[in-house]
Each structure stands twice: as structure tokens, then as C-alpha cells.
Design a protein around this nucleic acid. Structure first.
Lengths: 343, 343
DNA sequence: TTGAAAGCGTTACCAT
DNA sequence: ATGGTAACGCTTTCAA
């Protein structure tokens, strides 16, 4: 059943029926009710393609998943998408996900826009000077970045957590506990969140006038073996750290595994603070979570990023919109005074 | 630039230009070349919405992500989507992801189909008698299930790994090593893959005439704490198992963590076989992987499921299409003879 | 081999 | 408050 048929059934014009269904004010309430009843009765649902063509809006948002760095799928992707998907469902938008191979990315965005496939785009995991931001600005399509690109000077919308502040506070917590040799198992070099976290760490160490051992700062994709291997190596050094900062729960579990293997007790022999994205399959919950952490829900971020983007599209909200979320610093059971330290 | 303008530029009709661009045979090769050159020159890209409306095909496939069981996002989702996305990119399809809250799922599918939003659907994580299969059949839309629903008698297309065979073989491996008390940390009850794995385990135990301790069989969402907590509890029992079968790498890491905490050496004191979906952020690779595993790439499965679905749509391939993949059984460093067992 | 014109199912403008 | 009709940008049938 299409609009014309439904209109004929009702003895009305397609125009009126369309207006009644789309909530236009000029239609009489009696007519509107009749139309709505008939639509429900016949199971009429407007054809999506036709609506899109007629209005010029696609009511769809694009997410480009790039398989750049050694084909790593970011484990946070699923939770971010879940949060975004909730917002899309609430706001009546579709989510179009495309996968681009390295180098193919620019083209993925270009065709998405050229074909008028989406009304906006969400940008994931920016680097400091991410070229995609300039590209999307040039293509003149609304977009919101999940994360921030400090090397980009032109204005753009983003939502990020305060990575600098979170890691500065986490580092200070460890310093206050008497730790002086602290290792940072950071995310991949170039990712802006990793840069910010390193800066926060550095600032706290500098303020406390503690030397930073370059070998204690590592960058890599945040896998479990990364945590395991690097911890094993670091603990074998003569200047082994007494505390670890880890950029993700996944890596943290590797750290935990390595320390366990070495017979060390976490929170006593070695302290550990992790960032916790609150991924559903990696819970670190409870009143006193196992791991002391800086915590912020990536799922909630997904939800909010979509709200921001769609409000830009529909309400012509002033851009740029930016939000910097503080991460909670939650004390768990993985931190304690440095060995030999009297408070 | 749209088709009409491009046609005018060329002094041709829109019809001819359309035919030239879409590879219709009746257009002269000279004309075709001219048209293609002009299209490239002016950066003409056909409008997606208009093409969809005119052809009636959407060139899009839907994935409904249900947030049913305690809002768990399946960690394999990202890798599956990555594999699927590669296939979509190759075949020129879009992937539309919608998130449905529990109970809202049927409606999600119904509107997806009623609005003619997608040409087909991929079904994830079926239960034994999954109602969505009947629904999609009733809606008369092509679909392929990732996994199998043994309780559904009507024919449908699916791709699955041989969960029964994989876990039977894994169990037999442990039995051959002398293990008699084997714990199974299975996935959530009702999921068909979990049912199959339990059946494979049971069969191997029965064949060896070994008793199955009901308390050794657990079902839950496959998180890391699930592995940790259940291992800790199981090892405290008087009839503690000497070997573990784990349904996912995530859970396995929890098992590993618990055993490490108990001071037990894996592969000597306790043996462990896991299923490994080859998730990119949870690698278990190397010539001799850390964990002995049944292994099959969920990313490759995503790729193949999409190929199957699209071949059904475009080539009217005979349905049902079914594929049962054998999982590799890969020996790693987590299995060894049962303590006190002389081969 | 090419073109004119009629769809595809809506929305939106202009009348009434 | 309602209706006629022209878009929207393409594909496809029918003619030439």
C-alpha cells in the first residue's frame, strides 16, 4: 500500500494524507485522525527511498571504520556503536557503517558525500593533525569527532574526555602513594588521546620533580599481549617500575597476568591504574572495583556524539560544538603505597 | 552535477548517458568512452536515493544489534562487522546497523522491511528456536544466519562453525592426556553455539565413560570476570577439575588470571583449551600459541556470510545455502598430561 | 544506436 | 483546510 492508494481509499488527496501523517498543522484534527486510523489499519508505511529523494535528506549518518594500523579492530567500537545506535533509534536516523582499507579512506568519505548517502559523519580515533577533518570540512558535510585533534586549527565539533587531566590525576595519585618509577603503557603513537595522556603524565612527574625514564613509556595497540609482554620486560629491568599506568582494560589484563606470573601482588608489590572505557564485556565494577581507574563510558559518548551531530543537522545549532568530559578517578584494589614508602 | 546536466553537456540524452555509465551493451563504444571521460571530468556521481527509488533495490543490508541480555555487547561484533564491511565494499553494498532494545526487535525488523530499507538481513547469535527466523521468512526478505538454530525446522541459510565437533575434539584431546575432571565454561544458556559445544563435550565424555560433574558445567556471558570467578570457585572444590574448556578468549584470560593467582602453572598443573575467534585485539598467535585452542576467524565468517547473502539476492542462488566450517584444533602451551598421569 | 517520456513514491509549492 | 501538480534524479519501456 502506498500513499496514492491510501489517499484513494480515504477519498482524499495524497497531499492531505502526507500532511496528516507528517504532523503539519493545517490539517483538521478530524481528518488527521481518520488518516492515521486508515494508515494503521492498512499497515501503510512510507517508502524510505521516496521520502529521501523528495526531501533531499537521507536521515542517515555514516561511520567509516578504517582498517589502518595492522588491521586492529578497536575493541571499543562495539560499545560506541551501541550507544550511537540507541541515539539513532530515538531520533529516527539510520547508521551506515563502511569499512575502508588504508589509503582508501578519503575516497570512502568522498563517495559517501558525493552520492548524497548520509547527512553527516562521525569521525573516530583522530590523530593530532588528522587530515580527515580538513577533508570533511571541504566536503561541507556536518561531522562530529570522537576525540580531539590538537594539531588542527580550524574549528570543528568534537566530544572527548579530558585525557590530559585524567592521566595527570592518576599519576599524581601514584606519586602521592610514594611511587617514583612509573611506567606508562600508552596507546598507539600519533593517536591524540595517547598524546594527551602522555602530556598529563609528564606534567605530573615534572611537577613532582621526578625523572621520567624514557624506557618506561611505551606506545602500541592496546592488546592483551601488549600488556603482558611489556610488563614482563619492564619488570626484568634493574630500574623496574613500582607502578603502572595502562591505557585500556584490555592491556591492563595483560599487565595483571604478567605480574601474577611473577608472583607479585597487585596493590602491594606493584600498583596499577588503568583507564576504563566501561566496555560491557570487560567489567571493572563493584563498590570497590578490582582496578583503580580513570573511568568514562564510551557507550555514553557514542550516544552523545550522535545527539550533537543530529542537533547540528536539524536545528542548525551553532558550530563548533565541543564537550570535554571529565573522567572519574575511581579507587579500586590495585593501588597502594610504594614498597618501602612511609607516608 | 546530475545526470540531466551531464547529458546536456555532452549533447546526449539522459537515457544514453545512463546506459553508457551502467554498462548496457547497446551503446557504441565511442559514445561510452566520451561519456565516461566527461563523467570523470565533472566528477559526476549518480545520486544514490534516486537510483534506489528508480530501481527498487536498496543495495543495503541490515544488521540488527540487539541489546537483550544484560546489555552485553558481543566482543566479536567488531571483527564480524569488519569482515562483513570488506565484502560490502567489494560488492558495492551499504551496511545499515540498527540497535534494538529487548522486545523492540521484531518491530525493528518489520519497519526495516516495510520501509524497503534493505535488500537483506544478517542475523546474529541465534538461539535454538530463534523466533526471528520465522519472522524474516514471513516478511519474505533474504537473510543469512551467522550460527544455526537447530530447533527451527523450516529451511533457511546459515553459516556456522562445527561447534559440536570442535568441542568434542578438544574434550577428547584432554581425555587422551589423562584428564578426567574437566570443567566447561560455556557461553550463555540458550545460544545455539553453547548448546552444540555442550553436546560435543558430553559426547566425548560419554564415549570415554567418564562421569560429568554437573557443577563443572557453567553458562554465562563470556566476560573476563566470568572466567576468573568461576575458576576460582571451581578450584576450591574438593573435586576441582584438572582441565578447563573455555568458550572464548575473553573468558580464558580470566581463567588464566585465576590460575595464576592460585600459583598454578598452566599446561602442567592445569590444562586449558579455549575457543579462539581470532579477534584482532586478543591475539593468540605464534607458531606455538599460548593457549591450545579450537580456532576459526569470525572476521572471515563475516565476509563469507555477506557473500552468501548477496549472491542469494543478485543471482537468485538456490536457498537455503548452508556452510559448516571446521575449526582448527591448534596445540599451544596450555595443555599437558593430567597430574599423576602416565601415558 | 539513440531518444522521449513514463514511471518510482514521496514532499512541497501554489491555488482554491 | 484541501487539492493539483511539479519537482526529486534516476532507470526503463517503447519508438524511431
Amino acid at each position: 500500500m502506498n500513499l496514492k492508494e491510501l489517499a484513494r481509499t480515504l477519498g482524499l488527496s495524497p497531499t492531505t494524507v502526507s500532511r496528516a501523517l507528517n504532523g503539519y498543522p493545517e490539517v483538521s484534527s478530524r481528518t488527521r485522525e481518520k488518516v492515521q486510523a486508515a494508515a494503521a489499519l492498512h499497515g501503510y508505511v512510507p517508502n524510505h527511498q521516496a521520502q529521501r529523494l523528495a526531501t533531499g535528506q537521507t536521515k542517515a549518518i555514516g561511520h567509516v571504520l578504517s582498517l589502518a594500523q595492522n588491521d586492529m579492530i578497536n575493541p571499543i567500537f562495539g560499545d560506541f556503536i551501541a550507544g550511537a545506535g540507541e541515539a539513532y533509534a530515538e531520533l529516527g536516523y539510520d547508521m551506515v557503517v563502511s569499512v575502508a582499507r588504508e589509503g582508501n579512506e578519503e575516497e570512502a568519505y568522498r563517495t559517501l558525500v558525493a552520492r548524497n548517502r548520509v547527512d553527516g559523519v562521525v569521525l573516530h580515533s583522530p590523530t593530532a593533525t588528522d587530515a580527515r577533518i580538513a577533508l570533511l570540512a571541504e566536503l561541507d558535510i556536518p561531522f562530529v569527532v570522537h576525540g580531539v585533534a590538537p594539531g588542527v586549527s580550524s574549528p570543528y565539533s568534537w566530544l572527548d574526555i579530558n585525557n590530559f587531566g585524567a592521566f595527570e590525576r592518576a599519576t599524581k595519585l601514584l606519586i602521592d602513594l610514594g611511587h617514583e618509577r612509573i611506567a606508562l603503557l600508552n596507546g598507539p603513537k600519533g593517536m591524540s588521546f595517547a598524546t594527551d595522556r602522555l602530556a598529563g603524565f609528564t606534567q605530573a612527574m615534572n611537577k613532582a620533580e621526578l625523572p621520567i625514564e624514557p624506557g618506561h613509556i611505551l606506545h602500541a595497540s592496546m592488546t592483551e599481549p601488549y600488556g603482558f609482554d611489556s610488563t614482563t620486560e619492564l619488570m626484568a629491568r634493574p630500574d623496574a617500575p613500582t607502578a603502572f599506568l595502562s591505557s585500556s582494560m584490555m592491556t591492563t589484563i595483560g599487565v595483571y597476568r604478567a605480574l601474577g606470573q611473577l608472583g607479585l601482588e597487585i596493590g602491594r608489590d606493584v600498583s596499577l591504574v588503568t583507564h576504563d572505557d566501561m566496555l560491557s564485556f570487560l567489567p571493572n565494577s563493584g563498590d570497590v572495583p578490582q582496578f583503580t581507574c580513570t573511568r568514562s563510558s564510551v557507550r555514553r559518548a557514542g550516544h552523545r556524539v550522535v545527539e550533537m551531530l543530529i542537533s547540528q543537522i536539524t536545528e542548525k545549532t551553532e558550530i563548533p560544538m565541543t564537550e570535554l568530559w571529565e573522567a572519574d578517578l575511581v579507587l579500586g584494589r590495585s593501588t597502594g603505597p610504594a614498597p618501602g614508602h612511609r607516608p
